[in-house]
């Protein structure tokens, strides 16, 4: 019990004392995770929409593939992207390995299937008469899509939140492609793994608590946005 209390107090004191290292770690984590979530949403939501609103032959197969990709281990993606970005790889001359950009690339690949698949199921669940009605009332296809988006916004938002939760908590990609460089690519999860390796369990758990707190804050914020948009 003493150990958990220590961790909790350390977490509070680290946040309260504005520990510069901790804030840098939080900053890097949020920058990378929010960027990859934004990019994956930008591409993934329209694709999910498109799949939901169209019938085509390979649709079921495509959905099965997407659902499979949702279970792709982060180390596999990490290795894959590593092979491309390494000095000996095809994109080696870009010198991207061990940078936040490399982490974002890996994380986008990780969550793109999540965004597409969850958007698809959110839109697919809707009564398709919304769109038909909009179209018969003279809406352009884009306007009709916006009507559908409005109706599906909770599901789409859930897709975005799930994607963010996946990247902020993942460690494989961050470690393999970011390399855990202090002040540059060290995130909450890689910092925790490091503190565990060093035997600094109190600090590791304290970081875990901070991570939970950050996730909570982001989710509350997104929830708030959602509430506003429905009003």
């Amino acid at each position: 019990m003493g150990f958990l209390i220590d961790s909790f107090l350390s977490a509070v004191s680290l946040l309260w004392s504005l520990d510069p290292d901790l804030y840098l770690i939080i900053y890097v984590s949020l920058k990378v995770s929010l960027s990859s979530t934004a990019i994956a949403s930008f591409f993934g939501i329209p694709v999910g929409f498109w799949i939901a609103l169209h019938e085509f032959r390979a649709k079921r197969f495509l959905i099965t593939v997407l659902n499979t990709l949702m279970a792709l281990p982060t180390v596999v993606i990490g290795l894959w992207v590593y092979a491309f970005l390494s000095r000996k790889g095809i994109l080696g001359m870009l010198d991207l390995l061990y940078t936040p950009t490399a982490m974002i690339i890996g994380q986008v690949i990780l969550i793109l299937p999540i965004v597409i698949s969850l958007t698809h199921s959110a839109v697919g669940r809707l009564d398709h008469r919304y769109r038909k009605t909009a179209l018969t009332l003279g809406a352009t296809p884009l306007q009709a899509a916006l009507v559908v988006l409005r109706e599906a916004r909770f599901g789409v938002m859930a897709a975005v939140i799930a994607a963010f939760g996946r990247v902020i908590a993942e460690i494989g990609i961050s470690m393999m492609l970011g390399g855990n460089a202090k002040g540059f690519t060290r995130t909450m999860t890689t910092a925790m793994a490091l503190e565990y390796d060093k035997g600094e369990f109190v600090l590791a758990v304290a970081l875990g608590l901070v991570l939970l707190f950050i996730s909570l804050s982001v989710n509350v914020f997104l929830h708030f946005l959602q509430g506003r948009s429905s009003a």
């Binding site: 220590d6 350390s10 004191s13 680290l14 004392s17 290292d21 600094e200 600090l203 304290a206």
Partner: peptide
């Protein structure tokens, strides 16, 4: 230095480096 709490007492962990990390 990073301050953590162990056994109810504050402890400092030092990290020493040349230059600016990163």
């Amino acid at each position: 230095s990073t301050e953590i709490i162990k056994g109810g007492k504050k402890k400092r962990r030092l990290f020493m480096y040349p230059g600016t990390p990163g």
